[in-house]
Computed example of a mutant assay.
Amino acid sequence: MMRHDLPWDKWQKSSYSPDNGGQCVEQQLTADGLVAVSDSKNRDLGAHTFVPSQWQAFVAAVRDDSLA
């Protein structure tokens, strides 16, 4: 589901993201317990939301693949 109603000040960028505003994905935990994921360069597009277990599985899969 796409969300456009999330507070701007709650976004968290990856610790791997450069401080100079590089392209990155950011996330925040919504008031209803979902993980919202957005493009830091274009928040106006909205954010995709996931239940925490879905997001954790995605992150784990990306980490496992990057080790291969």
Rank of each mutant, 00 (worst) to 15 (best):
R3Q: 13
A31Y: 13
V37Q: 10
Q28A: 05
P52D: 09
V51K: 12
G33W: 03
R3A: 10
D64T: 13
S17C: 14
S40L: 00
H48D: 07
L29I: 04
W11L: 02
G22N: 07
Q12T: 06
E26C: 04
S14W: 11
F58R: 09
R63E: 15
V59D: 14
L45W: 08
S15M: 05
G46W: 09
D65P: 00
D64N: 07
H48V: 12
H4D: 13
G33M: 04
T49A: 12
T49N: 12
L45H: 10
D44P: 01
S40R: 01
D65W: 11
H48Y: 14
A57T: 06
Q56K: 08
K10H: 03
D32A: 03
R63V: 14
D32M: 01
W8P: 03
F50L: 08
D39F: 13
F50C: 02
W11I: 01
F58Y: 12
S53D: 15
F58W: 07
G33V: 01
D9Q: 13
K41A: 11
H48S: 14
A60S: 11
S40W: 00
A68L: 15
D64W: 02
A47E: 04
P7H: 05
G46R: 08
L34N: 05
A68S: 15
D32R: 01
A57V: 00
S17F: 08
P52F: 11
V62K: 04
Q27I: 07
R3D: 12
K41M: 12
A36C: 07
R3K: 09
M1T: 10
N20I: 14
A57P: 01
D9M: 14
L29Y: 04
C24N: 02
M2F: 04
A57K: 05
G33Y: 03
L67F: 13
D19L: 11
E26T: 02
R43D: 00
A60Y: 03
Q27D: 00
W8L: 10
K41Y: 06
V51E: 13
P18S: 14
S15C: 01
N20K: 15
A36S: 08
G22C: 13
W11N: 01
V37L: 09
D32Q: 02
P52G: 07
A47C: 07
Q12H: 05
E26M: 04
P18D: 09
S38V: 15
N42D: 09
K13G: 09
V51C: 06
G33K: 05
D44E: 12
W55N: 07
S66P: 00
D19V: 13
S53Y: 11
D65I: 02
T30E: 02
N42A: 07
H48P: 00
S17T: 15
S53W: 04
L34E: 10
D44F: 08
D32N: 12
A47S: 14
L34P: 01
L34D: 05
S53F: 08
Q27S: 02
G21R: 10
L29F: 05
D5Y: 13
V62R: 09
L67E: 14
A47I: 10
Q28V: 06
D19A: 15
C24Q: 03
S40F: 00
S15A: 11
G22H: 08
R63W: 10
S38F: 01
M2C: 00
D64H: 08
A60T: 12
R43I: 04
Q23D: 15
P52K: 14
A57W: 00
M1H: 15
